[in-house]
Design a protein around this nucleic acid. Sequence first.
DNA 1: CGGGATATTGAGGGATGTCAAGGTAGGTGG
DNA 2: CCACCTACCTTGACATCCCTCAATATCCCG
Lengths: 256, 256
Amino acid sequence: MAAAVPTLTGRTLALRAAQAGARGEVIARDCSSCGFRRSCLPAGLPAPEQARLESLVYMRRRVKRGEALFQQDDAFRGLYALRAGSFKTVLVDAGGREQVTGFFIGGELLGTGGLASGRYPSRAVALEDSEVCGLPHSLLEELSQELPALQRYLCAVLAREIVRNHGTMMLLGSMSAGERLAAFLLDLSARYARLGFSPSDFHLRMTREEIGSYLGQTLETVSRQLARFDAEGLIEVDQKHVRIRDMDGLARVRGA
Amino acid sequence: MAAAVPTLTGRTLALRAAQAGARGEVIARDCSSCGFRRSCLPAGLPAPEQARLESLVYMRRRVKRGEALFQQDDAFRGLYALRAGSFKTVLVDAGGREQVTGFFIGGELLGTGGLASGRYPSRAVALEDSEVCGLPHSLLEELSQELPALQRYLCAVLAREIVRNHGTMMLLGSMSAGERLAAFLLDLSARYARLGFSPSDFHLRMTREEIGSYLGQTLETVSRQLARFDAEGLIEVDQKHVRIRDMDGLARVRGA
DNA sequence: CGGGATATTGAGGGATGTCAAGGTAGGTGG
DNA sequence: CCACCTACCTTGACATCCCTCAATATCCCG
């Protein structure tokens, strides 16, 4: 089915770009210059598969702060690799209650839940002006048949998300407010470190309310716990800027 | 790599059966007589793929109540389809705290998290004497290359688990004790119904403590909420036996 | 029939949610 | 460039849900 790719670079691409343009600006594609090349989806693949996968990325798209990349229950269009910026995913249940189910930063994969039912199970909203790389699902499927390694890798990515969610369930189910926040900060720290950013000095892209929603608590509780950590010398907080002063201490708070 | 299968029916099978025998009794394989044929993993596949997948199931294994099918951090051996009985999965975090992360009944798939890292991320314990069908991962991988539909289907199964976990996160993050229990009972009810059992009359295979752990609350709270639902005429509880008398009422409790 | 596991029920307290009142930052328009 | 305005954050007082601890009851398995 390799024929589909040449087609894509011609009329089809232009068409899709135009369609996408209605939702957000489409910009040039170029994986080689991407800062997240090492941590993005292709990173786990052998070189030829990498190159092949990169040829699949059919467009970049800018998403402005507050805009949605996809809506809950939208038909599944494909996965998105996060090239710049950050997102939250929000789930609305039958009763109308909203909850933040995850935060995403550079190189991470958005939309995986959509592989299940053909619809995105949650809404993805940009926390700041961001850029994503689209991996349309029809091509992803074709390429998977061509490259078994990709298929296996995709499964592994999904399974990793399952494992991560289990961690979050643990956090929500059996940790106190302080422990949850410590775990949250340490998780963010580790993810920033993976991208080559400082693990101890970063900006929170999300509001206290969003953190609270994710952690299953109120924004006031988040604020108070942050103040407490600051008072105890574990971190320094100045609005959205966080500096971790005592990583081990924070880990101890989480662990207890 | 089809050659691997004939081999498996000979010496290899006997060898593996013997190895497995050390952990639990191995019994004859026969998908055609399985009561969960319609809801198990192959159900979503076209007939030829189904037959092929069934040839892959290399053994059944009995697991007695309280025994573990796999331990947390065990090397990934493969997936298990649950043929009879029920399981819980338990996660132990760095601090030694345990939490039940899921319950599994007939036809459901155990061990999916292991596809991520090559290790099972949680322990699976039988809640009653049970039987599972093993799908060894090396063969699963070979067959996936042969049958792209299986690979896609496997991805969908994983993605479905992600979606389900999101639901659990929602439950843990933003619902009260009563709402959580109502959601739990309705989820169980729907799953029993899918298997052709009564949606309104079933036995809880797990203890109050296990329910509490899963729902992020104490066993006393679970007991009190069950008593409350009973007093309100929503359900009848007699120890582990539950009868749902007012499904809509229960849904209303969950929804609020 | 006995004993350990499991479940029920009560009393009390603490963590966290709720409500409320400012305070701060950053963007927008004059 | 300043003033305003909105969104976000902080802090306090109070309420409440649920956890903790404890005593008793019941079930299930050997």
